[in-house]
Amino acid sequence: MLSLNRLRIALSARAALHPNRPVCAPKAGSRPAHSLPNRDAWHRKVTAKAPGEERGLTWCTGPGLRTFCTSRVQQGCWNCWNCNLPLGQTPAFFCRSCKVVQPPEEGASYFHIMDCDYTFTLDTQKLQTRYLQLQRSLHPDNFSQKSEKEQEYSESQSALVNKAYKTLRKPLSRGLYMLELEGMGIEEGTDSGADAEFLMELMEINEALDEAQTLEEANKIAQDTKGKLADLTEQTDAALRKGELQTAKALLAQMKYQANIEEKVKEKLSQLM
């Protein structure tokens, strides 16, 4: 398995090489189930243009761009469903020629969609800017006077962007998503890896929170939890940088427990206030 670290370096190198091109997400093979190429995409590819004519692959074969020509990206080299001209970039939300909204590119990772580097410590400011910018143009409200197909595409694009943003915004969901892309999602079931001491500590924090009577007590737990989450985020980043996926997985599981406590603290605080 390609380590995350190597992947990150490879991707950022590509990003540096082509600053205007969105960087394609992780390798094939360990993609989540939803990322299989859809029939629609295949259909468009096949019926796009007669052989010999350009099929939207021109940008893929340019000098220095050869590295992009994985099958994934070629799938991305689609033509506009409306005017049939090549979209020329991926992910393409709109056709550059006829300006019509495009269907979502199946299999594009959330990092790719949100134009973020494939790294755990992503620039959340940039993520938010990109989110707002995309939603401004993709929101279904903008398409109420457009064709049914355009409305449908804007709805699915907008929903996808929402999902991508939500997933990447918080370190926990972002980390879990990165593990999922690596084919290492956290399984349901009992935590055999967690040690008794850690579980006991969680139990005690939960009990203390449950019994907390004052804002002060609840705030103390809130601060402690916040600190632990920050710590765990840092450790997870270090593990992912080193490509230590198992360690990252264990750390993210701990983060999940702490995040649950954080949620409960918020509820408690609102009750006490």
Partner: peptide
């Protein structure tokens, strides 16, 4: 018995 579920973050004693 003390167990936890990492996927949902539940703890049970």
């Amino acid at each position: 018995g003390l167990v936890g579920a990492p996927a949902c973050g539940d703890v049970m004693k």
